[in-house]
């Protein structure tokens, strides 16, 4: 009855030890994987917020440049739309090697005192071919622009209507002085 009982006990011990080692190692590797995904998600979200901030400023830059380059220092929805559509992807492409893109839009509408820009920003990170993390959300920017060429040169004011911050302040007086009114 006792034939081989010690061999059996030792073999069983070896088996239990092997299973315990494999399970522990597997759990550690899985935890490391979860940690990488978690920190990457935080990083992607941070990049999205940064991209939103930069595009907010870039929208004002595009509007100001479209007025400045119009030839007669006036705002045109079409010219501003073209500028925004050119600026957004180009600028995002220079950040984090193109990790963030404009996945929809941008669209621009409204007169000079009430410009609305919509775009969807998507930021993501790939882990090989099978897994990735990304964050995608639509953003809206609201701007007001005024211009004045009465003095010979083209002066521009741009106000961010969401924050009330004057982002371009070249007109210092007169009826077109948007920022001080």
């Amino acid at each position: 009855m006792r034939k081989g009982i010690y061999s059996g006990v030792i073999a069983l011990t070896a088996l239990v030890l092997a299973v315990a080692i494999i399970a522990t190692a597997g759990q550690r590797i899985a935890m490391q994987g979860d940690s990488i995904y978690g920190s990457s998600m935080m990083e992607v979200k941070m990049h999205w917020q940064n991209a939103r901030y930069v595009l907010d400023k870039a929208a004002s830059d595009a509007i100001a440049d479209s007025v400045f380059g119009s030839g007669n220092c006036t705002y045109s929805t079409g010219a501003a739309r073209t500028a925004v559509s050119t600026y957004f992807p180009q600028i995002l492409n220079e950040m984090w090697e193109g990790e963030c893109i404009v996945s929809a839009g941008p669209s621009l509408s409204g007169a000079s005192g009430n410009i609305t820009i919509n775009a969807t920003i998507k930021c993501g990170k790939d882990f090989g071919a099978e897994s990735s993390v990304f964050y995608e959300k639509q953003v809206t920017f609201k701007k007001a622009v005024s211009s004045d060429s009465s003095g010979g040169s083209c002066l521009i004011d741009i106000e961010d209507m969401q924050s009330g911050v004057c982002e371009v302040d070249e007109i210092l007086s007169g009826p077109n002085n948007l920022c001080s009114q």
């Binding site: 870039a58 830059d61 100001a64 440049d65 400045f68 600026y87 371009v168 070249e170």
Partner: peptide, 17 residues
């Protein structure tokens, strides 16, 4: 860790972040 800022310059082209 890298973050980007943007400076608005009134000219005829976009600024680099």
């Amino acid at each position: 860790s890298v973050v980007y800022g943007y400076e608005i310059r009134v000219n005829s082209t976009w600024s680099s972040p």
